[in-house]
Computed example of a mutant assay.
Amino acid sequence: MPVVLREITDSNRDAVLDLRVGPGQERFVSSVRGSLKEAAAHPHAKPWFRAVYAAGEPVGFVMLSWDVEPQPPEINGPWFLWKLLVDERHQGRGYGLAIVRHVADLVTAEGATELLTSYVPQDGGPAGFYERLGFVPTGELDPDGEVLMRLALPWTPPGRPPV
């Protein structure tokens, strides 16, 4: 499922802010509005965010710490997948994998050797999703108790033949 990452502008802002996760998923990822407020409150984390489009329609949102100087435990990096949201109407279609694939390709081109992320360790959370993609726990928790995970780069995602 191909995706395109686009900057959030005045022309698409409302549609992107309307993206929502499914019922009960709010405890695992903040809304787009909340994520943008978090980005504004933490400029030192070098937030890089984009709307995710498929077939010309916004289907998700992604935010990273982009080539940041790590300052554990507050700032992880240099490449940290900070937010990944797929709208509830578009879940189960492969967009999550496509977004991670796209992000991994982007940061690999910038010289990244790993991509970090974290998840809330509760039932119904994204742990299995990240594990299926090849992320492995680092053995560390962030200050909020989220499990930190690492994906080695370059990466061959599930369903993509090695180059």
Rank of each mutant, 00 (worst) to 15 (best):
Val3Arg: 01
Val3Ser: 00
Val4His: 01
Leu5Phe: 09
Leu5Val: 01
Arg6Asn: 03
Ile8Phe: 00
Asp10Ala: 13
Asp10Arg: 12
Arg13Cys: 06
Arg13Glu: 14
Asp14Phe: 02
Asp14Val: 13
Ala15Glu: 15
Val16Gly: 03
Leu17Arg: 15
Asp18Val: 02
Leu19Trp: 14
Leu19Lys: 14
Arg20Gly: 03
Val21Gln: 12
Val21Leu: 13
Gln25Ile: 05
Gln25His: 10
Arg27Asp: 06
Phe28Val: 05
Val29Tyr: 00
Ser30Tyr: 00
Ser30Val: 03
Ser31Ile: 03
Ser31Trp: 08
Val32Asp: 02
Arg33Glu: 14
Gly34Pro: 01
Lys37Ala: 12
Lys37Asn: 06
Glu38Ala: 13
Glu38Tyr: 14
His42Ser: 11
His42Ala: 11
Pro43Ile: 09
Lys46Ile: 01
Lys46Pro: 01
Pro47Cys: 06
Phe49Trp: 15
Arg50Val: 02
Ala51Asp: 11
Ala51Trp: 04
Val52Glu: 06
Ala54Pro: 02
Gly56Val: 03
Val59Leu: 10
Leu64Gln: 12
Leu64Asp: 09
Trp66Gly: 01
Val68Lys: 14
Pro70Glu: 07
Pro73Ala: 04
Ile75Met: 04
Gly77Phe: 08
Trp79Gly: 03
Phe80Glu: 10
Leu81Arg: 07
Lys83Cys: 02
Lys83Met: 11
Leu84Thr: 12
Val86Leu: 09
Asp87Cys: 13
Arg89Ile: 09
His90Asp: 07
Gly92Asn: 08
Gly92Arg: 10
Gly92Ala: 08
Arg93Trp: 04
Gly94His: 08
Gly94Ile: 11
Tyr95Lys: 05
Gly96Phe: 08
Gly96Ile: 09
Ala98Thr: 14
Ala98Asn: 15
Ile99Ser: 05
Val100Lys: 07
Val100Trp: 08
Val100Arg: 09
Asp105Trp: 12
Asp105Leu: 12
Asp105Thr: 14
Thr108Ile: 05
Ala109Trp: 07
Ala109Cys: 04
Ala112Thr: 11
Glu114Tyr: 12
Glu114Cys: 04
Thr117Pro: 07
Val120Gln: 13
Pro126His: 12
Phe129Gly: 07
Tyr130Thr: 13
Glu131Leu: 14
Arg132Tyr: 07
Val136Asp: 10
Val136Cys: 04
Gly139Ala: 08
Leu141Val: 01
Leu141Arg: 15
Pro143Gln: 01
Val147Thr: 14
Met149Asp: 00
Met149Trp: 01
Arg150Asn: 01
Arg150Ala: 03
Pro154Ala: 02
Pro154Cys: 02
Trp155Glu: 13
Thr156Asp: 06
Thr156Glu: 06
Thr156Cys: 12
Gly159Asp: 09
Gly159Trp: 09
Gly159Ser: 10
Pro161Lys: 11
Pro162His: 05
Val163Trp: 13
